[in-house]
Design a binder for these strands. Structure first.
Lengths: 191, 191
DNA sequence: GCCAATATAGAATAATAATTCTAATTCTTA
DNA sequence: TAAGAATTAGAATTATTATTCTATATTGGC
């Protein structure tokens, strides 16, 4: 079955995520990724077709991990009060997974996806539209009278916690004291 | 006194800001800036010593413009209620100056300043510390009992509006309906 | 009108970084 | 244990982009 790989594909994506979190996607070179992962550049190209494709995988992995936390919590929220707690998914995610948090929260999606090949681009689009759909469904349920409900829910449950956490990223991790502040702000934004 | 310049230094920085807002600092090439500004690359280098120096000026110009709005408003706020309205400086700034807003709100400071020469770097540091100082003064005034007052004020007046606005940037401009939501969220974060 | 100063112009060069290519290693299994 | 698959390894090549350099054009003052 051939020689054993030093690292898994997921490890490679994680190494790329750490570099991208630190330097930003624009300065994330294949050399830097290879060094961070501890493999030669040739091995990187053995696994991925291009730098653009790898950067796309970095964003997709981060977004997927976030969506797995966020969407079920959102779907389960039956009241506005409960929905406000969904805003806490973001700080928790940022604490548990610093690099993915920085990728998602401190950089622009476009910079990871602009030059990506079709396949990854489509998967990324699906992730984004899943998120939109989840927010739309929840808005109809929780804010039925608000014509711009989805936008408001997005601001309350994504934008506000995102901004609050970003005050601390990428140098530090958001402190625990932040969570009640985020929850209160999200609640206020929903009323 | 010599030949007249086609564009001013400020115009050049503004052109660089538009490119950086669209592509991100990492992909902001001198060629793209020269094209956007309508001058040849040689002229760019006649005015600035390096790409890194120019990117730094982009960030500094944006931060300066923001600080000129934000700091006086913050200094004038005598009560917590009034302070919450300072949070509206951010959406207003983003509407009035799209490129600077995106530079400041949708990209990382580091990516503009990491390789900057000493001079611009020092000016940028001064801007940042002015902002910190303004927030510290206001926190002592408005949240005297909170040991982490400055952090909380930063979250309420910078982070929250920033995150709310970012839901719309860089494609669109934050709608007017957003302002009361931001104000309410900031108020909640301060209480 | 001529000279010095200041810019424009853009081609030439140098640096950096992506990608390809050729070998050399392991691992599996037959 | 030899063959073939999958991978490591990193040197060589190509592409892209920053920077330098050598004219050329304007402008203002004498």
């Amino acid at each position: 079955m051939g020689r054993k790989a030093h690292i898994s594909d997921a490890d490679l994506v994680a190494a790329a995520a750490r570099v991208a979190a630190k330097l930003g996607p624009g300065r994330t070179t294949i050399n830097a990724i290879a060094r961070e992962a501890g493999v030669p550049v040739g091995s990187v190209y053995h696994r991925v077709p291009s730098r653009a494709a790898l950067l796309a995988e970095v964003w997709i992995a981060a977004a997927q991990a976030f969506a797995e936390q966020f969407l079920p919590a959102l779907a389960a929220a039956g009241t506005r009060e409960a929905a406000a707690d969904v805003a806490l998914v973001t700080p928790r995610f940022a604490r548990a997974n610093h690099a993915a948090g920085v990728v998602l929260l401190a950089h622009r999606r476009d910079e990871f996806l602009d030059e990506a090949p079709e396949g990854p681009r489509a998967r990324a689009a699906r992730l984004s539209s899943d998120l939109q759909k989840g927010l739309g469904d929840a808005a109809r349920r929780l804010l039925p009278n608000d014509k711009r409900g989805r936008e408001r829910l997005t601001v309350a449950l994504i934008g506000i916690p995102y901004g609050a956490v970003r005050v601390f990223l990428p140098q530090a991790t958001p402190p625990a004291e932040l969570d009640p502040v985020i929850a209160a702000a999200a609640r206020a934004a929903l009323d």
